[in-house]
Design a protein around this nucleic acid. Structure first.
Lengths: 259, 259
DNA sequence: TCGTGTGAAGTAATTCACAGCC
DNA sequence: GGCTGTGAATTACTTCACACGA
């Protein structure tokens, strides 16, 4: 999962709905919306689960936390379920969001159609570069960071997206929080620290690739058998280094990587 | 968490390392790299955990799956740990990746520095639009989809990034897999189906925002107490609809949302 | 009869708490 | 004395399997 919460221990069930379930509701919603467009009236847990890429037991259990919205022997009413999930997710109102940091990524986010179509409205684009100020991106003029507090309070924004370089992210985060933002989606490759009551989710492209590389390496390792010992890596610290019995092939050279 | 695996049940412990631990290793690595740049020689689990945004018990447990790389009473040797985690993640080799779909997002990804700096090399950019062919993005000329198979086999690419519109994603995915790709990072808002042995991770911007909206709504709901009943929503299907005792405030109107 | 809804069972992840080593 | 490493306890999540209602 490209993501993770920060505050509020994952253990806290939000209104009794497990966090893992909440994370899947948008998936179900997307599948249901597609069915709705094709005017499919009802759907079984099996069909919907398959469209959402999960198994049907999980889906039924997930829905059971919301209430009993299906009909035994029949399935779920698509339109009704779309509404119930939308309401549960808070998508029956629209949420103004601000995007801070209008570089390549910020601009891509501003242009991303998936926001507007799901109850999110880009209320403002903010960048620290004065040269950007006034330039329209995705039809919205970029405003300077100086205006940040005013923009947020004037528009009643509670969700902020950080797409700045890592070095500025914490500072931007603090200004957002001070200005009243209580939910942050962070694309900067850095850990944000926020006070209690503020939610942070992060999306880190390089972390996702690293996780893939881990599994990729494993696949490769299965084909190539033992592999002869190469010179052991960087000098261990002055300590007895034990290794798990099942630990993998030794690599070759330390190769410390840049930031 | 912006993400999730697809095949290979999450239950499968890769070489004994829990999936949840693997997902945190890149986080530790990033924190360690920062310490390394500041020439900090050793770090305690407490300090490192705080820098990575997790608690120290979790961090120590995570490291215990890799081996015993610390020194009791002292902490962990930064350089050594950087190497060990890099090796575990497969980052001591570099991984060529292809990015398919060079729109706003694809271009942003191509320009993203975090890839190159961590062992990933953008081997090629691929787009279906003939008008894009030859145009350089991030210094790399875009190639046409026709070349996809050749590019992958010529460069021995095993990791692919899909940044196409949702409608083309599955088809692109199938071509990638047929050409030998075994790990996919999917930015298209769609569920990809892949054969066994292929890993998929997804990043969906709109899903992340929806999860934030859920929690945001909850916060708002805590302030506003009971709230008078509004007219009940969309006509329920012909069935007795039960609701969980603790279910939330009723919204107002169905408001079916577009795709 | 069919498919939902859900207790119960099973599995994974987290946290506790302390023995062991420096 | 301080901090790692790890079994044990806890909590969260998933899957099973079947009663129940349409």
């Amino acid at each position: 999962m490209a993501t993770g919460r920060t505050h509020r221990p994952a253990t806290t069930r939000s209104r009794g709905i497990p966090e893992a379930t909440v994370a899947r509701l948008p998936l179900y919603l997307r599948a249901l919306t597609a069915l709705s467009e094709r005017s499919v009236p009802t759907v079984s847990s099996e069909e919907l689960a398959s469209a959402a890429g999960v198994n049907s037991a999980k889906l039924r259990k997930d829905f059971s936390y919301l209430g009993s919205y299906g009909t035994r022997g029949v399935g779920y009413d698509v339109e009704y379920l779309v509404y119930q999930i939308s309401r549960e997710l808070g998508l029956t109102q629209d949420w103004p969001v601000v995007i801070v940091g209008i570089g390549n990524l910020g601009a891509a986010l501003a242009n991303y159609g998936g926001f507007a179509s799901r109850g999110f409205r880009v209320a403002a684009l903010i960048d620290a570069d004065p040269a950007m100020a006034g330039k329209p991106v995705a039809g919205i003029p970029v405003q300077h960071t100086d205006e940040l507090e005013k923009i947020i309070s004037d528009n009643g924004v509670s969700i902020g997206v950080i797409a700045t370089p890592a070095g500025s992210a914490q500072q931007v985060c603090e200004r957002l929080v001070a200005a009243g933002i209580t939910s942050i989606l962070n694309f900067a490759p850095t850990v944000l620290s926020v006070p209690d009551g503020v939610d942070v989710r992060k999306v880190d492209l390089s972390i996702e690739l690293q996780i893939l590389a881990f599994h990729e390496q494993r696949k490769a390792g299965e084909e190539v058998p033992p592999e002869e010992e190469t010179a052991p890596p960087a000098a261990p610290p002055a300590a007895t280094v034990t290794k798990r019995p099942d630990s993998g092939p030794d690599g070759d050279v330390p190769a410390v990587m840049p930031a």
